[in-house]
Amino acid sequence: MTTNNIILTGGCLCGALRYQTTAQPFDSDHCHCTVCQKSTGAAVGSWMDFKRVQVTWIQGQVTEYASSDTIRRGFCHLCGSTLSYRSTDYPDYYTLSITSLDDANQVQPKYHIHTASAVSWLVIDDELPRYANARSSD
Rank of each mutant, 00 (worst) to 15 (best):
V107K: 00
L83H: 00
I124Y: 12
T115Q: 14
S81R: 07
S137G: 02
V123Q: 13
A132L: 15
R72Y: 01
S87D: 12
Y111N: 06
G45Q: 09
A16L: 07
N4E: 14
A118M: 08
V44A: 03
L13P: 00
L17Y: 09
G74E: 04
F50D: 00
S68G: 08
L8A: 14
Y85V: 05
G15D: 10
A104T: 01
T95W: 09
V55K: 04
L101S: 00
L83W: 00
M1D: 12
V53N: 06
S46L: 04
T99P: 02
S46V: 07
H77R: 14
H30C: 11
S39F: 01
S137K: 10
L13K: 11
D29F: 13
C33Y: 09
H77V: 03
E64N: 15
A116F: 08
Y131V: 07
S97Q: 06
A66W: 02
N4C: 04
C31D: 04
G11V: 02
S46K: 05
S67N: 05
R130L: 11
F50K: 03
V107G: 01
Y131A: 02
G80E: 02
T99S: 02
A66E: 15
Q20S: 10
I7R: 11
C76Q: 06
G11E: 03
D27G: 03
A118F: 00
D69Y: 01
S67E: 09
Q37A: 13
D103A: 15
V55M: 08
T115F: 08
S68N: 09
I58C: 08
Y131T: 04
S120Y: 03
S97D: 08
Y85A: 01
